Amino acid sequence: MKNKKVHCAVDYAFQRIGGKYKGRILWVLREGVLRYGELNRAVIGITPKMLTQTLKELEADELIVRKVYLEVPPKVEYSLTDTGKELIPLISHLRSWGEKQMSAN
């Protein structure tokens, strides 16, 4: 994503964090390190295939870090990068706005 030429900062931001699950995954990771299974349980409605794909995209965009432990069974942990952490106040604001809109309907 970083090398793709864009002309609008808003488009760039939404390309990196847009979609159905990216914001939710970032929000869940705000409290710390989680393993794949914990993420799968926390992000309701996501399929394992979609979770894996979305995690790869977030990692490629350097919003999360994937740490693999060489043990049996394999252990993989995910956490926010500093860039990912910068998004949390913005996601929190969007969440508050969404809650307000949902209660008005």
Rank of each mutant, 00 (worst) to 15 (best):
G37A: 01
I17W: 04
L39A: 00
W97R: 12
T83F: 14
S103Q: 12
E57L: 12
R24F: 05
V28K: 04
R30S: 14
L90Y: 09
Q15Y: 14
I25E: 00
Y21E: 12
G32T: 06
L80S: 09
N3T: 15
G19T: 04
Q53W: 05
D82N: 15
W97L: 11
R24K: 11
V65H: 06
E71I: 15
Q53A: 08
C8Y: 06
G19A: 07
Y78V: 02
L90R: 08
G19D: 06
G23I: 05
V10A: 13
A13Y: 07
K67L: 02
A42I: 00
L90I: 07
R41L: 04
G19K: 06
A9Y: 13
V28G: 02
L90T: 10
S92G: 09
A9E: 13
E71C: 14
G84N: 05
G23E: 10
A9D: 15
L63Y: 06
L34F: 00
I25G: 00
L55F: 06
D61W: 08
S103R: 14
P48K: 09
C8Q: 11
G32A: 05
V10F: 09
G32N: 02
E99N: 06
M102A: 15
K56V: 07
I88E: 02
L70G: 14
K67D: 13
E77N: 03
I17V: 10
A60T: 12
G45W: 08
M1T: 07
E59K: 05
E59I: 06
E77A: 02
W27Q: 07
R24C: 03
Y78W: 07
R41Q: 08
L90H: 05
S103D: 11
A9I: 14
G98K: 10
G23A: 03
C8M: 10
W97G: 08
A60K: 12
D11T: 13
I17L: 05
T81D: 14
I44N: 01
S96Q: 03
Y21T: 02
N105F: 07
R35P: 00
S79G: 02
P73Y: 11
K75G: 03
D82C: 09
K85Q: 14
K5N: 15
T81G: 11
K2L: 12
L51T: 01
N40G: 04
Q15C: 10
K49W: 08
K5Q: 15
E31S: 01
A104G: 09
E31Q: 01
Y78F: 05
I91P: 03
L29Q: 00
Y69D: 11
R66L: 12
H7E: 11
P89W: 05
S79K: 06
I46S: 04
G37I: 00
K22N: 06
M102N: 09
Y12T: 15
E62K: 14
Q53G: 04
S79H: 03
E38F: 00
L34C: 00
W27T: 04
R30F: 01
E99D: 09
V72I: 10
D61A: 15
T83A: 15
D82V: 11
G37R: 00
S96F: 01
V76K: 00
P74A: 10
W97E: 10
D11Q: 07
E99G: 01
A42L: 00
L58G: 04
A9C: 13
W27H: 05
M50C: 11
L63R: 09
E57R: 10
